[in-house]
Amino acid sequence: MPQPDGQAQPSREELRINFFRPRAGFMRKEVRIIWFTLAAWAIMTFGMPIHMALTHSDPVRTMTEVPYVFGIPAYFWFSGQFLILWFIFLCFVFNVLIDWLTSSYRRRR
């Protein structure tokens, strides 16, 4: 946070912005929310294709082995339908968290 009595020369540290070493306070909490959302985004998006690539190589056998949802293989439904819902949900959660964080810091100011 910039000091309210900011007369003194700021140190280099005070002007630092680095995603991997966020400043204490608002930015650190914000970056924590971002990491959380990004992890939920990456694992769900790329986890399924990676899992499928590692475990299934034969088209016909895959069709008999995998579980089914709504009449289609579960992984297919997961990629084509569920993930878009998941993205919407993630944006929703992210917004709720950021709204909460912003309002708590605005009050503190």
């Binding site: 971002i34 959302t37 990004l38 985004w41 993930l83 878009i84 944006c91 992210f94 917004n95």
Partner: peptide
């Protein structure tokens, strides 16, 4: 199934944009 790469890329990108 390969088309889902397009669908997910063009929706998941908004998560990246919003979050980052």
């Amino acid at each position: 199934y390969f088309a889902f790469a397009y669908i997910l890329g063009w929706t998941g990108g908004y998560v990246l944009l919003l979050v980052l």
